[in-house]
Write a protein that binds this DNA or RNA. Structure first.
Lengths: 395, 395
DNA sequence: CCTTTTTATTGACATAGGAAATTATCTACG
DNA sequence: CGTAGATAATTTCCTATGTCAATAAAAAGG
């Protein structure tokens, strides 16, 4: 009949429609019957909910997959993911990484620019330029930003960012005013975790943790399908957990804390100082260890032990069976897996279960991608009140 | 008109009605307007939802509280809590503790019996007898059971209980068959945590942890208003967290683990062995420390340090601002608060916030009370499908 | 007494959802 | 090849849940 225009924003759909899309995005194409069972709806309702989504080309009927069970085969529904684009940014102390992804989290474009200053108005200008550039070919649904700090899961401002020197910058309001796009802010590790959850190795897991190593140590966690940030956004601060009473000092003067063993700078200093060398990087450290250098070997095995202890503690508290390792420091992982595993087993509670460890090799763009996926999740889970519902059901 | 009979089971109410009752039970009497705002409903809906609840005397209109703001004062609604009774049990290795509580978690009766054997059929018989006795004066809404083990939040069976030697006992099914009452099983620490959450010091907090010391170390956590149990019910297993690389051995042969410092038996052995005494209890240990006994003082301060490290780790992972200390080992707390606080501050992440520590003095009945509150929460949050809805709305 | 302010109720109406019957489309099997 | 059995999807009809706008109610302060 009346050919409705396509849906402007996924955030204006009804909660049931959004639940359908969420399920399709996180689980892949599914027939109506399966969807109905998963969402606890009747088949009748599902037909009624999906019809307007089909009419407006938010979703489509997938080619019928071959079927070996008796009975009429279901026609899988799938989201027209490429029709919906999201912009995601990661702000580090010196660089702004930006990506455009589709609803399934596939990166369509990526671009990074150096920060000339950490002044918030400068960074805002850079973000706006990048938003315009990324949105040239296709309108954007939302903007997601990840940076260090103590933001809540879906926050509207940057809180306590030590690298940028920002405290309480209402970035979402500013960007929404200047771009007209709904914007959400989150801690970078939380954004990465959402990327892992919806379109990474966390898919299909209701509970897991992401542990990142690199400049610092990060912990993101998904509990009951939700990213957990803590009351004040301070969850996952495990970088200064004491691993040993002896051991090296971290930059805060803690002896034997995790960052003193695991931060890239700590590892490099621990190797290069005794050897009197400079210009070492993690790859170089690994090569040294491969060649039998005792200092490098010891430093890396100590790092492995520290990581094992950390993971064990997280698993003991949360009772997880999946932990995903990520971060740019991951190159050292194969040199420390032995110590890691033995420390993990040694510190796990005997009544707990040994978690499945997965590695997720990722660069900085992956953090920006996570922020984009975060904005998509935000629209589909907890959309801001902006516009009137775009489609209604008729019986 | 037709004077409907009073509601048989709270579990048969609609989800909105249950949300209203939940809010009233956890926040106390509230006027309709406030209730509507908190639950995200329109005032009109609230009037319509609460009318049948008033008609059937599930709730009542409280005496109007004095009011100083302009405008018509609201009439607070309150739950007829004493009309609804729940039975809660805690099963230890040698005793069964039973309580009957009302919907607000107030204990109406309590009784405990010793187990003659840990045989499940024997324990089942004891529970059934106690259920009958507790339900004499008033019909029971549900049964809640707490025991050690790796049960999920609202489970139907006892899994891996080391003290009873049970593994996979379908206790809920058995008890429902024999008593006709909906039954829910949970880990004892989780049951205690629910008691703390709904009618204890956790009221009003969306996120907090309960740490218990006594025979063992327990950790219960509430995240986003929900008790967290982990995928396999193994969350909160922090008893064997390594606190130090030196230190005493625990019963599993871990050197310097938390139980080696904090379990009642460990503390008592550490003091009585050097002194060559027997028959020491925790009160005695405290008296020794008060009198200046260096062994007792050292053992207790070590315990305080261990507890501080444990709490810091939990807070670092979860980002909590409230931690509640409980358990029968709490008597030693004032002797170790100094070491506890310094270890806590020393091990907390500098970007985290120092949590508010509260103590909750409780006996074993409190654990049974928690199980009863758990069954109430279960009915109101996630009721089993048993009966047809008992009241309907008419426009 | 009247205005302001907030709470509570009412009735008209829209939407979300389910149950049961019906139709559609596949496999298995004689 | 045709039919029985199984499962998927739709249709029809009904109910439950919710909003909106208008109105009444109950206080405080002139």
């Amino acid at each position: 009949m009346n050919d409705k225009a396509s849906i402007a924003s996924l955030g204006t759909l009804s909660s049931t429609s959004r639940a359908v899309i969420r399920e399709l995005l996180t689980s892949g194409p599914l027939p109506r019957a399966t969807l109905a069972r998963r969402l606890g709806l009747s088949p009748a309702r599902l037909t009624k909910v999906t019809r307007p989504l089909l009419d407006s080309a938010v979703i489509y009927e997938d080619a019928t997959a071959p079927n070996k069970t008796p009975g009429r085969p279901g026609t899988p529904l799938a989201v027209h993911a490429p029709r919906y684009a999201f912009a995601g940014f990661k702000i580090t102390g010196d660089t702004l990484y930006g990506t455009r992804v589709d609803a399934e989290g596939r990166v369509q474009r990526a671009k990074s620019v150096s920060l000339e200053s950490t002044d918030s108005s400068h960074v805002v200008d850079l973000i706006i330029d990048l938003v315009k550039e990324l949105g040239e070919e296709q309108p954007l649904q939302a903007i997601g930003i990840g940076s260090a700090g103590t933001m809540r899961r879906y926050d509207d401002r940057v809180r306590r960012n030590q690298y940028l020197g920002w405290d309480d910058v209402p970035l979402a309001e500013i960007l929404t005013a200047k771009t007209g796009l709904p914007t959400v802010i989150s801690g970078d590790i939380r954004a990465l975790t959402v990327g892992v959850q919806w379109s990474g190795p966390g898919q299909g897991h209701s509970d897991f943790a992401v542990v990142t190593i690199g400049v610092g140590i990060g912990l993101g966690m998904v509990i009951d399908d939700q990213v957990h940030a803590g009351t004040h956004g301070t969850a996952g601060m495990i970088g200064h957990t004491r691993v040993s009473e002896a051991g090296p000092l971290c930059e805060l003067g803690h002896r034997g804390c995790a960052s003193a063993y695991l931060n890239a700078d700590s590892i490099l200093a621990a190797i290069s100082v005794p050897h009197g060398i400079t210009d070492l990087d993690l790859d170089g450290a690994c090569r040294l260890a491969d060649r039998g250098d005792p200092v490098a070997q010891r430093v890396l095995s100590d790092a492995g032990r520290a990581l094992g202890v950390l993971i064990a503690q997280v698993v003991n508290v949360l009772g997880l069976d999946t932990v995903i390792l990520a971060g740019d420091g991951l190159v050292i992982l194969e040199h420390l897996s032995q110590e890691l595993n033995s420390a993990l087993r040694d510190h796990l509670d005997p009544w707990g279960t040994v978690p499945h460890l997965e590695t997720f090799h990722s660069d900085f763009d992956e953090w920006a991608r996570g922020a984009a996926v975060l904005s998509c999740q935000w629209l589909l889970v907890d959309p801001p009140k902006l516009l009137a519902p775009s489609i209604t059901h008729q019986q």
